[in-house]
Nucleic acid binder design. Structure first.
Length: 934
RNA sequence: GCUCAGAUGGUGGAACUGGUAGACACGCAGGACUUAAAAUCCUGUUCCCGUAAACGGAGUGCGGGUUCGAUUCCCGCUCUGAGUACCA
């Protein structure tokens, strides 16, 4: 029979499902291998052809590892809490659970069609109560922990309480809020419970605090920094503003250093590691306190008598000629003198009006205002003006900088603009036209530092500042604590209730705290989150928290749930975690670089600290598959003399001769840029009567690469491809498209080549009448050579994730075997196993036809490569003169270099090329090349 | 601006430690089969000169360098894509 991909694929997909072929074993003598995909959010649009790219690669890898004798865990699930289902619920009243359920069904159908070897018995959904029970449980562990800097790990909050009871706050080195109290053990014990609790909240790894958040009024929720792009929400593109709110936060900053160091221990793409390093943003420097000058010091200033700054160039402290604080800085009001009040107020108003975008676009304009107050340089007592300016950011460091115009270009421009002094501090500094940030040379105008170099100077300043208590060496991180709350419905409820204004965890035995029903998915009239509408939803002791967890909560630990997906006692058993340990290979997009992949590492490190998991890093090796973009096609509508569109369309090659306007056309009615005119006429009713100006009898469409989206008519649905060519063709074609990590536009042109290949492969096992038949004769040398070439190639390619090149090699192997008229059983059977990870359905069918015992080939042993079959006794040496190849010459590989040289020079054709000249030098590289220098 | 990745035929791409540039596939051109089309098969296909073959020349973004030999290594530049940004 001809290659009937539809019957074959359906048959084997059913077989795998019925027999649980891909169930991973929990106990096995085999070595383990964990292959994970980033689980999808099940959107209403279903999968387009770009989504499965990474899944296909990981599936090939998982299937290959099974053939290689590994116990493979290859699961799939859904990140099913999220905004789109809720937006849809707001518009239609449909419960998000229903929408989500329907979308998951579509996803599952589409995924099944592609023939993935997922162990579906371990499926997880983040929105399912038996899953989010454990997300809530992990939240509770974070609430019950604090970060001990001395031990450099998270510890139980009861240990902290014990310390307070015995020693008070002395000797505690914690990552905590800035303003913690100092107390003795007796003072602690004397505190009322509510005071103790509110103090402990300053230490917990998840805590409440008033913070400035990215508030998106259109979505009615706060967003994380990585969900905001250029002042607009990543989802929906709505404007985002800054707002102060009481929020749950996660003390991820406690792990900043470990998150940074850990990057050196994992096999991830360098650009992605670099993005995480930048996000963490470690900078080493010093913090310095500048005392505020008393005479100008405003009366309301009581808690602070200094301004603290962070700098990476403490050595330039004698070059400080003014100080700049952010317009939002808490001391602005009290520092402003009555004479300057009008200026400052005007400046602050102007700053507030500027959006984030303007502020960025406007980076070159210098602006600022003088407060009228002064600080003193702690080292020489010099009086220094305090200014405010929006180039200083409230959110970084202390929101204040010491300005050194001779060494910093922004300070330089500011000084020039406002006529402030610029003092050189290094002998070789050139500050005629711009600042010079050099570290070479020695210091001048710098008191005790004069004559020292950078290294000695920096050390001297830090020592001096420390001795007078005015400053110290400090490491600063750009990363902020992560906000952990959304004012939305469709997320995990936070397992907390409030009593007397303080948060309390619910009983662990009451988990999961179920998401209640509400009448509408909108905020309440009083502006509370939708959960405020839930009737009778109340803890006996107080009010539940009304915000839900953010989207990244459920995805920050899901790979552990797959290890033991149905456990109702623990998030996963100790036994399962000790067996599976971590993810060996993780494949997903780089858009999660600073979100999911950072939060997951944070939670993993925390779970390690509290001894719940065994590995410090969750994902040993990570690969970013490239994005598949859309490839839009255009037709060109002729514009008449009055500038109106006509119903005539001009072929792309001729548009320069006419006045036209481009129009997106459905890529599914275009083949190799040639428009199918019949289908085009049916594309829209008004095209029924369309006319065409053709070139060479064809209508050629224009092409552009854009994002894949419905409105651009460039979405290619995998269902259509599978319907036409089958899943095996789709899988191989997606791999054939190019290197996995590279982004590329989808182009269905060329898929025929892959389909033809599979048919040719099928034909090896069949005669001209399409009857199955293989021979049991001894394989020939040439057949074995072709086979073992592909065995080695596939092993090498898969290990280095070069899937596109192995598809080419399969084509070469099948072409060779076809030329050899090979129908040898042993050769073909081995080839079936080698190809099966790429094209599993056709290979299963042929495996059965070959007469193997009923069942799947998924666990057959991968053929063993034997180099003996590839040994050659001759090689066609390229003979080159001055590096230019002139001819090839067959020479025995047993000859040594001297003999080869003699053999080549004796050859008549070589002599003809040499034209009577004697080569100055002959280079012979055995088995590679002969080069003669003339 | 900074960081990272990349640039190879008409197209997607291959060439793994410096050793025959353009594998494999698409497209295109020509041919076979067919009443015809589709399908299938065969041949050619980097560019230039040449009727064709032989032969000759150029060629991996640009300009240099190292080397017997460079797509590969080094220096400088151009362009494209991604990330990030008054980060003190």
């Amino acid at each position: 029979m001809d290659y009937q991909f539809k019957d074959i694929e359906q048959k084997w997909q059913q077989f795998w499902a019925q027999h649980g072929t891909f169930k991973a074993e929990d106990k096995s003598a085999k070595p383990k291998y964990y292959v994970l995909d980033m689980f999808p959010y099940p959107s209403g649009a279903g999968l387009h052809v770009g989504h499965p790219l990474g899944y296909i690669a990981s599936d090939i890898f998982a299937r290959y590892k099974r053939l290689k004798g590994f116990n493979v865990l290859h699961p799939m699930g859904y990140d099913s809490f999220g905004l789109p289902a809720e937006q849809y619920a707001i518009q239609t009243g449909q419960h998000p659970a229903i929408t989500t359920e329907a979308n998951i069904a579509t996803y599952r159908r589409q995924l099944d069609q592609i023939g993935f070897s997922f162990d579906w018995s371990r499926e997880v959904r983040t929105s399912s109560p038996d899953y989010y029970k454990w997300t809530q449980w992990i939240f509770m562990q974070l609430f019950n922990s604090w970060y001990n800097k001395d031990a450099d790990k998270a510890e139980s909050i009861t240990k902290l309480v014990e310390h307070f009871e015995q020693n008070g706050s002395a000797g505690i080195n914690a990552v905590c809020d800035e303003e913690v109290l100092s107390f003795t053990a007796d003072e602690w014990k004397a505190m009322p419970n509510s005071a103790q609790q509110s103090e402990l909240l300053k230490y917990r790894l998840t805590y409440l605090r008033e913070s400035t958040v990215n508030w998106c009024p259109a979505l009615g929720t706060v967003l994380a920094n990585d969900e905001v792009k250029d002042g607009f929400s990543e989802r929906g593109g709505y404007p985002v503003e800054q707002k102060k709110m009481m929020q749950w936060s996660m003390r991820i900053t406690a792990y900043a250093e470990r998150l940074l160091q850990g990057l050196d221990t994992i096999d991830w793409p360098e650009p992605l590691k670099e993005m995480q390093r930048n996000w963490i943003g470690k900078s080493t420097g010093a913090s310095v306190k500048f005392p505020i000058e008393k005479t100008t010091h405003h009366s309301s200033l009581t808690t602070h008598n200094y301004i603290e700054v962070f700098t990476t160039r403490i050595d330039t402290i004698f070059g400080v000629t003014f100080l700049v604080i952010a317009p939002e800085h808490e001391l602005v009001a009290s520092l402003t003198t009555p004479e300057q009040k009008a200026d400052i107020d005007a400046y602050i108003t102007a700053t507030k009006k500027k959006s984030e975008l303007d502020r960025m676009a406007d980076a070159k304009t210098v602006s600022g205002a003088f407060t009228g107050s002064y600080v003193l340089n702690p080292l020489n007592g010099e009086k220094i003006q305090i200014w405010i300016a929006d180039y200083v950011l409230a959110g970084y460091g202390t929101g204040a900088v010491m300005a050194v115009p001779s060494g910093d270009q922004r300070d330089y421009l500011f000084a020039k603009h406002f006529n402030l002094p610029i003092v050189p501090i290094i002998d070789i500094q050139n500050i005629e036209t711009e600042a010079d940030p050099t570290k070479e040379g020695t210091y001048i105008n710098s008191d005790f530092m004069n004559g020292l170099d950078y290294k000695a100077g920096t050390a001297a300043v830090i020592a001096k500042l420390e001795s007078i208590g005015a400053g110290k060496a400090k490491v600063n991180f750009r990363m902020r604590d992560a906000i952990f709350g959304r004012q939305r419905y469709w997320g995990e409820p936070v397992p907390v209730y409030f009593k007397d204004g303080l948060p309390h965890l619910i009983e662990e035995s009451h988990l999961p705290l179920l998401l209640p029903e509400v009448d509408k998915y909108l905020p309440t009239e009083s502006g509370e989150p939708p959960l405020g509408r839930a009737e009778g939803w109340k803890h006996p002791e107080g009010e539940y928290e009304l915000s839900t967890m953010p989207g990244w909560a459920g995805s920050s630990w899901y790979w552990y749930r797959y290890m033991d997906a149905h456990n109702d006692k623990e998030f996963a058993s100790r036994e399962a975690i000790e067996y599976w340990k971590d993810v060996d290979l993780y494949i997903g997009g780089s858009e999660h670089a600073t979100g999911h992949l950072l939060y997951s590492r944070f939670w993993n490190k925390f779970l390690k600290d509290i001894d719940q998991v065994v590995e410090e890093e969750p994902f040993k090796k990570l690969i970013n598959q490239g994005m598949i973009q859309g490839r839009s096609n255009f037709v060109y509508r002729l514009i008449d003399e009055e500038g109106r569109g006509t119903n005539t369309f001009v072929s792309h090659g001729l548009i320069k001769e006419y006045k036209t306007s481009p129009l997106h056309v459905d890529v599914n009615i275009v083949e190799n840029e040639v428009l199918n005119i019949e289908k085009f006429k049916k594309f829209r009713p008004e095209f029924e009567t369309a006319e065409f100006i053709l070139e060479s009898g064809k209508y050629i469409c224009g092409v552009e690469v854009e994002k894949m989206s419905k409105s651009k008519f460039n979405v290619v649905n995998p269902d259509d491809i599978i319907n036409r060519y089958g899943a095996d063709t789709l899988r191989m074609y997606e791999m054939f498209l190019g290197p996995l990590e590279q982004s590329k536009p989808w182009n269905t042109n060329g898929i025929e080549g892959v389909f033809k290949f599979l048919r040719k492969f099928w034909r090896l096992f069949h005669n001209d009448a399409w009857e199955f038949g293989v021979s049991n004769a001894e394989p020939s040398k040439a057949e074995l050579k072709a086979l073992h070439k592909i065995i080695r190639k596939v092993e090498e390619d898969i290990e280095r994730f070069s899937f596109n090149t192995s598809v080419s090699s399969f084509m070469i192997a099948v072409n060779e075997l076809t030329d050899l008229k090979c129908n040898n059983r042993t050769v073909l059977q081995d080839l079936v196993i080698v190809l099966s990870s790429y094209a599993p359905h056709i290979c299963e069918e042929l495996w059965t036809l070959l007469g193997n015992p009923a069942g799947s080939l998924s666990y057959a042993p991968f053929p063993k490569f034997n180099s003996a079959y590839l040994v050659e006794d001759e090689f066609a040496y390229p003979i080159s003169i001055n590096g230019k190849t002139k001819m090839n010459l067959n020479i025995s590989l047993s000859l040594d270099i001297k003999d080869i040289e003699a053999f080549v020079l004796a050859n008549a054709d070589v002599q003809r090329y040499l034209d009577g000249k004697t080569p100055k030098k002959v280079i012979v590289v055995k088995g590679r090349i002969v080069n003669m220098v003339v």
